[in-house]
Amino acid sequence: MDTPQSEKPGVRWLVPAGIAVTAGVLIGAATPAGAVVVTEIQHFMDFYSGVFTLVGLTVSMVAGLVATDRMILKIQHRILAQALHRAATLISMAFLVSHVVIEILTRNADVVQVLLPIGRTSAIALGTVAAHLMIIVALTGVARARFATGRRPWLWRALHWLSYAAWILAIIHGLLAGRQAPVWVTWSYLVCVAGVGVALLARGLVTVRPRGGEEELPEESRSKAAKRKAAREASRSAQQAANERIKVSR
């Protein structure tokens, strides 16, 4: 019962508008006045796209960790946190691409170094590994719905945890490679580290204390789990009965 794309009114003008904007950018960049603007953009990207990749990654990780919280957040906040997590990942991937492209253009890195973690400086190699891990993690995120029908749901989480490794490598890469950082950049690194640390702590609390959030005695938590199980069974059987009722028997 898919709505054909042509039926949705919003989509129809989107494609021509997108083409027009892209053409405009391509033409504008060829003019000399455009060249001045583009040089500024290039300067900005050269300096900041790497930083923003890391910041985006950090925001994404913090949002993702926050979204698992059940104690403080209401459900709608969790959904918004997940939406933020996805948007931040998308943005940081875009910055990652632009960072890599700019570094290749300025000959600070070879094209080969994008694919393989080789090179004179280990700093760039670290960046390559971090980027690859980021891509894998992002792909698992995109394909999350597939895991819903698979037989190994734990696999998704295991793969997604590679993001921590990617993040750590990205931090080290940022500190080692490239220019000497001005003070505020170093401070922002510290803030990123602190943010993820706090979020991890919150996540740890969730696993240790399941929903409810109060300290429980072992018997209490066991009986609570039993009650939960019973409630779940009740819901399931009610659901099944409802389904049976309107199921057409032949």
Binding site: M1, S235, I246
Partner: peptide, 19 residues
């Protein structure tokens, strides 16, 4: 969500705007 917080899924098809 029912009383216990578990989901009850309505047995209609998925309308297009919900997909």
């Amino acid at each position: 969500l029912d009383r216990n917080g578990y989901p009850i899924v309505l047995n209609t098809g998925i309308p297009p705007w919900v997909e």
